[in-house]
Amino acid sequence: MSIIVDENTRLLVQGITGREGNFHTRTMLEYGSTVVAGVTPGKGGQDVVFDVNGKQLSVPVFNTVREARDITGCNATLIFVPAQFTPAGVYEAADAGIPVIMTISEHTPVHEMMKCYHVARQKGLRLFGPNSFGIISPGKCKAGFMPHKYYMPGPVGIMSRSATNCYETVMMMSACGIGQSTCIGVGGDMIPGSAFVDLLPCFQADPETKAIVLIGEIGGSEEETAARYIKNSVTKPMVALIAGKNAPKGKNMGHAGAIVGADGTGSAESKEKALAAAGVHLAESSGHIVEILKTLKL
């Protein structure tokens, strides 16, 4: 097993004829993911042909998500469209009842994602991102743009607000022979479609996941919320890294969500304190995460 995406995932790519959508669809096909359809309004009826490891694979393009779902039975979608079109893409996927909706682009206004969050919630769908690298269950399905050669199947579930910190950790884990069950890009924005606390029950229930790594950072209170849940409901060992301990107060650090208030709200200390009190191992770096995982004898 694994969570959210696996060998049964039938992917839709919204924006498949765009530069990014097209490029990353090919890398997902190369990885062995099942991409069953693409959507680009006005380009329905075409096939996009990909040269994958010497074979020609064609993916049908539809005008709407609903049509793509009716004909191909897609059960997850990746939205590879520019920031200003992302909310409309989410609404369309939600109205078509796609159960897993992943948004990639950065710089979508937070007000729009706030509405998307509530729409997904009311419909009982899972929304990921924005500003997320996607989700990968190594060996089964790559849904996103992560550099997949660093990943290998294994017992550790990872959820991360940062793409780069997740890549770094995965590279070091794999180099030591520690693989991953599923890696999820929670995203770097202020209102993530799915927060750590929404994913913990999935990792806890997944028999393949033996340990959980949480890569958080300054800003907001999702780590504290997760800590409260962990304390009562997570029995698997957990390791956490919080980035931004030495970030200046009141300054945005690149991710829209990574900011410590002038009054100290959203600080790394508060998050580390809450996680430590919930029994989570705290790591100082990606390398330290791996050192701790080694001691867990997974």
Partner: peptide
């Protein structure tokens, strides 16, 4: 300098931890 906010913060943390000032 880094290509990602998360790695940027991690590098600031590790450099600071070593007693240097960014």
């Amino acid at each position: 300098m880094s290509n990602g906010s998360g790695m940027l913060m991690s590098c600031i943390d590790l450099v600071s931890k070593k007693g240097m000032k960014v």
